[in-house]
Design a protein around this nucleic acid. Structure first.
Lengths: 132, 132
DNA sequence: CTCAGGGTTCAAGTGCGCTTGACGTCAAGG
DNA sequence: CCTTGACGTCAAGCGCACTTGAACCCTGAG
């Protein structure tokens, strides 16, 4: 079975058909082929959706993900994809750093013996530079 | 100046007053003191908001953040805060791992010479375990 | 005194990421 | 033949995190 109906696909990727239709509607998935009016997806779609979910977990919006993936889909866009990926990398790194900082803050806080996160001494200095 | 009006506070933390009122309405900020009907905030609120933003950047919902912080605010809740923090730590770690994985995937992909993220060979094996 | 510039409340609106509902079509099975 | 069930479309709804608008009040500078 090299093609999947929307229900099958949805089950495979753990989403609802409505979500897949929605993705198509916003151009995140290419228009599915039709057989008797019904959508049929090549199995590769499973992988594409896995990528989407991956990027989503990293806080990319669907619009961003569409850019990441859509710079694609036909030939030629390699250059564009690379440009975008290179742009995204530092963003990801920055985000990772921030999150790591929070993680460490929580961990330190636990180790520090303070009463709670809000009142922790360790955090008084660091986390978010004030914006005055 | 040990107390701030809502406008001042908003400016300091780079948000709009409406957001601060909203935070209060959902219990994320304790009810501000009032002077002639107007909210006044102790300067410490700046720090609290910095923490909120920090946690937000790490994808905590405001409801979760409220829990993280509210286990607080009066005495006694230390135990609770610790329990919650300990619960959150692994979540954070998991999230960090996933994000790191995405970052690496993008980086590898750039290095791999593939046409785009979607078609990258390197990713064919790894990212999201299928759910069939 | 006046009035501009904040502040107050409450209800409704916004954008994102979907879901749900109403209604319709079609193919397969009893 | 008729029903069942999965699929189709389209519009509306939902939860989150806020913003905006309408209507009102207060303070203080000119």
């Amino acid at each position: 079975m090299r093609e999947l109906g929307i229900g099958d696909l949805a089950r495979r990727v753990g989403m609802r058909p409505s979500a897949l239709r929605y993705y198509e509607s916003i151009g995140l998935l290419p228009p599915a082929g039709r057989v008797a009016g019904r959508r049929v997806y090549p199995v590769g779609t499973v992988r594409r959706i896995a990528l989407i979910k991956m990027a989503q977990r990293a806080r990319f919006t669907l619009a961003e993900i569409r850019q990441l993936l859509d710079t694609t889909v036909d030939r030629g866009a390699t250059r564009q994809w690379r440009a975008l990926a290179e742009r995204k990398l530092p963003e990801l790194d920055r985000f990772l750093q921030e999150t790591q900082a929070l993680r460490d803050a929580v961990a330190d806080c636990l180790a520090c013996g303070c009463m709670n996160f809000d009142s922790c001494q360790l955090l008084s200095s660091g986390p978010a530079g004030d914006a005055a």
